[in-house]
Simulated scan of single mutants.
Amino acid sequence: MINGLQIGSIYAVIALGYTMVYGIIKLINFAHGEVMMMGAYFAFLAATAGMPIWAVFLISMVGSAVMGMVIERVAYKPLREAPRISALITAIGMSLFLQNLALVVFKADPKVMPRIIPSNPIMIGSLQISNITIITFIISVVFMILLTLFISKTKPGKAMRAVSEDKEAATLMGINANSTITLTFAIGSALASLGGILYALAYTQVAPTMGVLPGLKAFVAAVLGGIGIIPGAMIGGFILGFVETLAKAYISGRWADAIVFGILILVLSVKPTGILGKNVREKV
């Protein structure tokens, strides 16, 4: 259950980026996992340069935020009025581009993530819990709370909510929709980077393909909780983390991924809107 809490925290943070972007422009950004991977590489470079832990997190998250804004402006903005399938194919293309870019720049061999957080296991009776597990959970929850407060209390957050409700009406009310969408990509990419750092610290390796499965599982978490709904992404991430670790412990490690993606099929069959999603009538 503790292991599930750790990996669930990581999935939840990554899923927040998915759900933010979908909530604003109804785009499933399949390059999100690769932004997570690049964020882990940014952290690796900063850590190997001997920077303090706060600088490692800051450099990685800022670098990924800038990358997210560039991707949005170059790849997605020209397709705003195009059919959704065009943007979806572009997202898959961007995912493959970032993977291959990492292969060229960083080579195929996995890099060992420096231990920027000293390993001091915490003993509770006969139970030994890694301090990285606890730190991962705390960091994830803190950033989830900060994001929720940002969306509900700040002016840019309210602009995001307005654009997600009705982009044209928000524009008529004086909101710059383009800037709001770019900011959404920046925040989502920074959260993906945070997930990449926590994932690299947990599994100690950074590789060009490391973002594929966590990215897909975070997407499943977002759908499970209700894509476009921030609390839903958190709930979906934790549920998925628990299901995956319990499947590995009590069924089989080989079946764990199949069970996770089987949940996606089940949710889409029974309640396509997710746990917190609601059916919305649309006038035609």
Rank of each mutant, 00 (worst) to 15 (best):
residue 122 I to T: 10
residue 62 V to P: 05
residue 274 G to W: 04
residue 190 A to H: 07
residue 272 P to I: 05
residue 259 I to P: 02
residue 101 L to N: 09
residue 120 N to S: 14
residue 17 G to A: 01
residue 273 T to V: 05
residue 128 Q to A: 11
residue 234 M to K: 09
residue 47 A to N: 10
residue 144 M to P: 01
residue 265 I to A: 13
residue 12 A to Y: 02
residue 155 K to Q: 14
residue 26 K to F: 07
residue 118 P to K: 04
residue 29 N to F: 02
residue 127 L to K: 12
residue 283 K to P: 04
residue 154 T to I: 03
residue 38 M to Q: 06
residue 178 N to A: 12
residue 86 S to T: 12
residue 37 M to N: 01
residue 51 M to V: 08
residue 278 K to M: 10
residue 30 F to N: 02
residue 92 I to K: 03
residue 146 L to H: 12
residue 175 I to E: 05
residue 89 I to D: 07
residue 234 M to P: 03
residue 194 L to M: 15
residue 104 V to T: 11
residue 251 I to T: 10
residue 4 G to E: 01
residue 123 M to V: 10
residue 11 Y to E: 04
residue 122 I to L: 05
residue 264 L to H: 10
residue 237 G to P: 03
residue 11 Y to Q: 01
residue 244 E to H: 08
residue 205 Q to E: 14
residue 20 M to L: 15
residue 181 I to M: 09
residue 67 M to N: 07
residue 255 W to A: 14
residue 221 A to H: 04
residue 78 P to I: 11
residue 227 I to D: 04
residue 61 M to F: 10
residue 160 M to K: 07
residue 283 K to Q: 14
residue 282 E to W: 12
residue 83 P to H: 07
residue 88 L to N: 03
residue 150 F to V: 03
residue 260 V to E: 02
residue 263 I to Y: 01
residue 19 T to E: 03
residue 53 I to Q: 00
residue 191 L to D: 05
residue 119 S to N: 13
residue 29 N to S: 08
residue 143 F to R: 02
residue 146 L to E: 06
residue 260 V to W: 00
residue 163 V to Y: 00
residue 170 A to N: 06
residue 155 K to V: 11
residue 37 M to V: 05
residue 207 A to G: 15
residue 159 A to V: 06
residue 112 V to S: 14
residue 168 E to W: 10
residue 234 M to S: 10
residue 124 I to T: 10
residue 176 N to C: 12
residue 185 F to A: 07
residue 70 V to G: 06
